[in-house]
Design a protein around this nucleic acid. Structure first.
Lengths: 244, 244
DNA sequence: TTTTTGTATTATGAATGCAAAATCAGTGGA
DNA sequence: TCCACTGATTTTGCATTCATAATACAAAAA
């Protein structure tokens, strides 16, 4: 049997030039599976048939199973004893929960980024912002989404707390899957862009307190969109902490 | 070879009476390893020899490896390619990071618990509080620690956001290991108890805003203790968001 | 027709086998 | 004495194999 599929081998190539690339097969698979799940290639609830998946990836079941356990810990996959694994369902209730936690984390990130980020960091975010505006102007929703996501991730990353970034990323992955369902109306889209203008402004002025509030509102609006996409009108506002 | 060690089999017994117990071996192992790590039986940095550990647990390497991958995702274990796994080191820098995130999460929990918890929940926490006072009065530090931990976990749990509780627990596990190093002075201990009195008071009065602040301060004090235990005087205050 | 039961097939869970990499012990040389 | 090298041993990573549970399906009974 083949040792590794060409695609997998190619993926992790070219990191730091002097060092030999040295990754574990199951880590490659984790990355690959995560992408497949987040991008919807593996739909929520879909069963992960070990034999089929292993064959498709050109590996044996062992590293695949290890990767599945890893993703199960991250919450992207659910395990049923003797019944295998499936992609975690996109439960509206859980989405709400995650948004509440993400709200607290983004608020924290907003606070921290205003203190810790240097001018280059902010310039980078600003550049992404304009790139995003370009996608908006062209009406390229997919590109807009990707860019938007990069901005939020960059913001959290530049808060200077790796743990925060990691937890954020992990929770975000679960929710991100809904994005490919969502379909923004023009009005909503314009509103989101306007919010981003304000976010950038607060960031540039390093107004942490304001950035915090803006990010929270932005996230709350995003939640509404996601819930609509999932076919659940948000009956009651999610339990958000008072903006104190 | 034995299928399962008696100890492991006993652990998950007695759920709902009609149903047969049905757990995965690697899940048992995850629980067991996590305990061993958190309780210091497996010290930070210590190598996880697969053959030895598997023998000790009475299982083969396969489910053990799966459990290790699971814990690696949770951050309790670190993997080095071709060099196996070791218990994640207790890095002071990372401890600080985690405390910052835990601060945001506990603040959120404090807010939520004041809205969502019912009287029974609060009565339960109050009971734990008095139990803790008893341990304090007797000078039983270990029992105090355990009870203290249960209070904080219960508080987060009763916030009514399972995702929050899960993330909190996961981050907490990393930091918890330092507890068995720490050695509280009497003065510090008394102070911590006093803080808990205030926390309970705010909870009973459902004063979310105040509870939030109390929890944050309490956590900040705890961080100081932990850092001292790790031999790192906290040079500068950790980047905490403004209490606004 | 519907339900149930027995059987064949398939998938999962765990153990074992095997090759490659890392570690260690010992030797030789500077 | 210290270091570099070499071969043996250990350990890891992955594949394969085996046992058991789940599923599908057909035949029999209600």
């Amino acid at each position: 049997m083949l040792r590794i599929s060409p695609e997998l081998a190619a993926e992790g190539a070219s990191r730091s030039p002097g060092l030999v690339e040295r990754r574990l097969l199951h880590e490659e698979v984790v990355g690959r599976l995560r992408d497949m799940i987040v991008q919807g290639e593996l739909a929520p609830e879909s069963k992960l048939n070990e034999r089929v998946l292993a064959e498709r990836l050109g590996i044996s079941r062992t590293p695949l199973r290890e990767a599945i356990k890893y993703l199960a810990s991250a919450g992207l996959v659910e395990l049923a004893p003797n019944r295998g694994a499936k992609v975690a369902p996109l439960k509206p209730e859980k989405v709400k929960e995650i948004f509440v936690v993400l709200g607290a984390l983004e608020a924290l990130a907003g606070d921290l980024v205003c203190r810790n980020a240097n001018d280059a960091d902010i310039a980078e975010i600003r550049a992404l912002h304009y790139e995003m505006l370009a996608h908006h102007a062209r009406g390229d929703l997919a590109a807009y989404f990707r860019c938007n996501q990069r901005i939020h991730l960059k913001l959290v990353e530049r808060a200077g707390n790796a743990t925060l970034a990691q937890v954020y990323g992990s929770l975000n992955a679960y929710v991100l899957r809904a994005r490919y369902i969502a379909n923004l109306s023009r009005g909503r889209w314009d509103k989101a862009v306007k919010e981003h203008e304000e976010i950038l402004d607060a960031l540039v002025r390093r107004d942490g307190a304001r950035l915090k509030l803006l990010l929270r509102d932005h996230l709350a609006n995003k939640l509404v969109l996601v819930m609509e996409a999932l076919g659940h009108a948000p009956e009651s506002a999610p339990a958000q902490p008072a903006a104190g």
